[in-house]
Amino acid sequence: MHIPDGFLAAPTWTSTWLFSIAGISVCLKKVTMVLEDRIIPLMGVMAAFIFAAQMLNFPVAGGTSGHLLGGALAAVLLGPYAGAVVIAIVLIVQCLVFQDGGLTALGANIFNISFIGAGGGYIIYRCIARIKNDRRGVIIGAAVAAWLSVVIASFACAVELALSGTSPFRIVVPAMLGVHILIGIGEAVITTGVVSFVLKVRPDLIYCPKKEECQ
């Protein structure tokens, strides 16, 4: 879902750039306040894993592929702020080094994939994990957060394209939603797989906002 240069009009990409700079500054402040030693290496490992997994496009219907975005996965393990920072780091390297996602569109890509993926994904995940406070709640929450965050991110992406006059709203919104409803299933499968594995071998690595709320 990485938007290349040229898809977004100047008002859209400048405003998403400004918003993303502000958002990342908030995340960095929050991370600094709660940064525990154990989370530092996990941030490196999650960035590496999500970068690698994003290279692995899987086929979905009709000559289209999708790949993990990783926002929900990062948030389940690192929480919303460190999770968003890790996804932003992956996006910055992809943009500058690999020409995946445009430099002008970097703000929009951070908004869609990092803020909606990790931030939005975390809210969805916690809503479910709080109702059902056990392993199954974590897994179901991660699955729903993965799927829904990809679908919402694709909607945001479509709105940015429509606002830019790149494609009309009534055309680009249903098209983007239609394909990402399928890609989101892949996101949910991978996220659930990794979260289940971590729950089995190192359950203490799952992010816990308050000690009394976790097992």
Binding site: M55, L56, N57, F58, T64, S65, S154, L161, A175
Partner: peptide, 18 residues
């Protein structure tokens, strides 16, 4: 061995002509 097919956004851009 990743799928060489265009991703969701690329495919939509192709189909919708942008």
């Amino acid at each position: 061995f990743a799928s060489p097919w265009p991703d969701g956004l690329e495919k939509v851009a192709e189909d919708k002509g942008f």
